[in-house]
């Protein structure tokens, strides 16, 4: 995903959640729903963005021993949106193209999380360094 596709973080409306256990995922998901609703997304988009956040947060729990998700309001040109940023310092993803394929999993789970996030959000971008960690950014525009 190009640099352009990213959204600039807005100073206001930023929520940060440390994800170290399942309960944190639910909290972050609630914050995400609130933020998306306040921005004026329809209920079906709110649900989808919340689902994407859960997918990213659980990936950090299962594949990276936890991390942080940040929920930002963002704007580009005159458009508003919501940005999810999941940052961890886990093992990183060795082959991103493979990880983005449906049904690819290194843990024997469904392997549809990352590709589904891509389909649910308007843009998604993964930065990862093996041995250092992974940052996934995903945006949805109003």
């Amino acid at each position: 995903m190009s640099q352009q596709d990213r959204c600039e973080a807005n100073a206001g409306g930023r929520l940060v959640y440390a994800i170290v256990q399942e309960a944190d995922v639910e909290n972050a998901m609630r914050g995400c729903r609130r933020c998306a609703r306040q921005l004026g997304f329809s209920e079906s988009i709110v649900f989808m963005v919340a689902t994407a956040l859960v997918e990213l947060a659980r990936n950090m729990l299962y594949h990276a021993a936890g991390g942080t998700v940040t929920i930002n309001e963002c704007s580009r040109a005159s458009r508003w949106g919501i940005e999810l940023v999941a940052i961890d310092h886990g093992p990183g993803i060795a082959n991103v193209a493979l990880a983005m394929q449906d049904h690819f999993s290194t843990r024997g789970t469904l392997g549809i999380g990352l590709p589904a996030v891509k389909r649910m959000m308007d843009s998604m971008d993964i930065e990862t360094v093996v041995g250092q960690g992974t940052t996934v950014r995903a945006c949805k525009w109003l």
Binding site: E26, M29, R30, R33, F47, A50, T51, L53, V54, E55, R58, T109, L110, I112, G113, A116
Partner: peptide, 10 residues
């Protein structure tokens, strides 16, 4: 249910 991710669906 507030979100249906792949784990929930499974």
């Amino acid at each position: 249910v507030a979100a249906v991710d792949s784990a929930v669906a499974n």
